[in-house]
Every structure is written in C-alpha cells, then in structure tokens.
C-alpha cells in the first residue's frame, strides 16, 4: 500500500474536502492504484537534470506602478452570495 485511508483523509482535510468513510475507502484504493502505476517515477535518473529556474531566463511581463481602476464595480460582486454594505459577509470565523 502506497497510501492509507488515514492519509487520504488527512490530505483531503488539507485540501478542505470532507470525505465519508466510504468515499475515503474507495479513494484510497483508486489513489493507491494511480500511485502504483506511477511507481516508475522513483527510478527516474535525476543526476544531470538542471533546475527549472535558471539564470538567463527572459524577463517576463512586468507592469509599471500605475493605478488601473476596475470600472464596472456592480459586476464585481454579482456572484457573491451575501454582502453587508460593501463587505462580504461570512459566518463567524474562529481564530
């Protein structure tokens, strides 16, 4: 076994997903099969592979420090389920 049911539950929790016991059981089986199929990864020879972030990379898109106001403010929160004034309202956050 490459991944246990408990590990699946722990990982799902990190990803803010809750699983029923049944779901966790089923997923553990599926993920185990996927990880077994990927077993080959462990044999990849990494000796001479460089790093992805190498010097001499092109300077990508960068923007000047200028204000751009998003014009259509009404559209911005049409998808929000609950507002209070211009605040977004959510149930009490436990600190």
């Amino acid at each position: 076994m490459r991944i246990s049911k408990d590990e699946v539950i722990y990982t799902a929790k990190l990803a803010k997903l809750c699983l029923t016991d049944e779901e966790a059981e089923k997923l553990a089986g599926e993920l185990d099969a996927i990880l077994a199929d990927m077993g080959a990864m462990e044999t990849i020879d990494m000796e001479d592979a460089g790093n992805d972030t190498e010097a001499g990379m092109p300077r990508g898109v960068i923007r000047p420090d200028e204000n751009v106001v998003f014009g259509d403010r009404d559209k911005l929160f049409v998808n929000t389920k609950s507002m209070r004034g211009t605040f977004i309202q959510v149930p009490k956050v436990i600190e």
Partner: peptide
Amino acid sequence: HMEDEPYTLVD
C-alpha cells in the same frame, strides 16, 4: 468580527 452577530465581514 462582529460583536453581537455570528458573522465576520471581509474587506
């Protein structure tokens, strides 16, 4: 965090 209501407001 609101005092008297069970809500938090996000800005």
